[in-house]
C-alpha cells in the first residue's frame, strides 16, 4: 500500500543562525497509510507542532524529506497550495480563526480561495457541514460568533473538510471541550476517516484520547521519535511514558502499581473493560 505521507530524517531548527536558534526536530521518521489514524504524542517542546506544520508545507524541511502523495515538499517547484488541498491542518483552538459573519461563508472560505465555481463551493459547504453535525438548513445563516465554543470548533473543521483533503492533521482537536463535546467530535472524526483513502494524524498530550482513537502511535520527545507502535505496545511501557513527562492512563497506572506489588497482572491494558477482566482474574 502506498503511503499518503512519508517523512524521512526530518530536521528543523527555528531561527537558524541567530543567537536565538532552537532545534525542534532532530531526524524524525514518520509514515501515514490510507485508512489509519496515526497518533502523535509528546510533551510540550517535543517538536509535535513543528512536525505537523511540515505535513502541509507551512514549514519546509531544512534537512530530510517530506513526501505527500508523491509530491516532495523540499522541492521548490512543488505547488504548496496543491499540497494544502490534500492535507488539511487544524490548529489548536481552531474556533479562534473564524472571521466571517455567517457560518456558511466561513466554511466556504477555503474552496473560494482555490477558485472553485460557486455551485461546487455550495455543494462542498453542504457536505462539510453535514459531516460535522451542523445541518446547513439550521446553521448556514447563523452568525458565527453566536455559536458555542464546541459548535465553532466544528465550523472550523468543516472549513477544512470543505477542501476534501485526504489527510486530516489535527493538533489537540479535543482540548478544552466538555466530555459530551469530546465524544461528539471524536466520533465525527472516526466517521470521516472511515471513508476510502483517508487518514488522520492526531497530535495530543492526552494519552487516553490517543489510545482510544489511534491505530498506530509515535512517541516524540526532544525532537526525536522515541518509540513507535500500537497504543497497546506503547502503554505496556509505562516507565518510558512517565520518564518523558507524559501521563499514563489511570487503568494502566493501577495495573502497573499492582504488578509492582507482586500481583500477576498484565500492564498493557487500554480500556476499563480489559482492566475489569484482568482484575477479576486476580480477585476471584
Amino acid at each position: 500500500m502506498k503511503p499518503l505521507i512519508e517523512v524521512h530524517s526530518l530536521h528543523y531548527t527555528y531561527l537558524r543562525g541567530t543567537p536565538l536558534e532552537t532545534v525542534a526536530l532532530r531526524g524524525v521518521d514518520l509514515v501515514v497509510y490510507p485508512g489509519e489514524v496515526v497518533g502523535l504524542v509528546g510533551p510540550t517542546g517535543s517538536g509535535k507542532s513543528t512536525l505537523l506544520q511540515h505535513l502541509n508545507g507551512l514549514l519546509r524541511p531544512q534537512a530530510g524529506r517530506v513526501v505527500v502523495d508523491g509530491m516532495d515538499l523540499g522541492d521548490s517547484r512543488t505547488d504548496l497550495r496543491a499540497v494544502r488541498r490534500k492535507v488539511g491542518l487544524l490548529f489548536q483552538s481552531p474556533e479562534d480563526q473564524l472571521f466571517e459573519r455567517y457560518v456558511a461563508d466561513d466554511v466556504a472560505y477555503g474552496p473560494l480561495q482555490y477558485g472553485l465555481p460557486p455551485e461546487e463551493v455550495r455543494a462542498r459547504v453542504r457536505r462539510a457541514m453535514l459531516a460535522v453535525g451542523l445541518p446547513p438548513e439550521a446553521y448556514a445563516d447563523r452568525p458565527t460568533f453566536a455559536l458555542s465554543g464546541g459548535e465553532r470548533r466544528r465550523v472550523a473543521l468543516a472549513g477544512v473538510l470543505a477542501l476534501d483533503p485526504q489527510v486530516l492533521v489535527l493538533d489537540e482537536p479535543l482540548a478544552g471541550l466538555d466530555p459530551a463535546g469530546r465524544r461528539l467530535l471524536a466520533s465525527l472524526l472516526e466517521e470521516w476517516c472511515a471513508q476510502e483513502g483517508r487518514a488522520i494524524v492526531w497530535a495530543s498530550h492526552s494519552m487516553d484520547e490517543v489510545a482510544r482513537s489511534a491505530d498506530r502511535m509515535y512517541l516524540l520527545a526532544e525532537g526525536r521519535v522515541i518509540r513507535e507502535g500500537t497504543p497497546r505496545e506503547i502503554f505496556g511501557d509505562a516507565e518510558l511514558l512517565l520518564e518523558h513527562g507524559l501521563d499514563v492512563p489511570a487503568v494502566t497506572w493501577v495495573l502497573r502499581e499492582l504488578a509492582r506489588a507482586g500481583l500477576p497482572v498484565r500492564t498493557d491494558v487500554l480500556t476499563l473493560e480489559e482492566a475489569c477482566d484482568v482484575l477479576e482474574g486476580v480477585l476471584r
Partner: peptide
Amino acid sequence: HLARMLGARVPSFPPVVLTPAQMVAAVR
C-alpha cells in the same frame, strides 16, 4: 466505573472507589 463493573462480577468488591490509589489499595 471500574469499581461498579468489578462489583457486578466480584460480589465483595466495594462500590466506593474513586481514585486510582484507592483502587490499588482495594485490590491489594
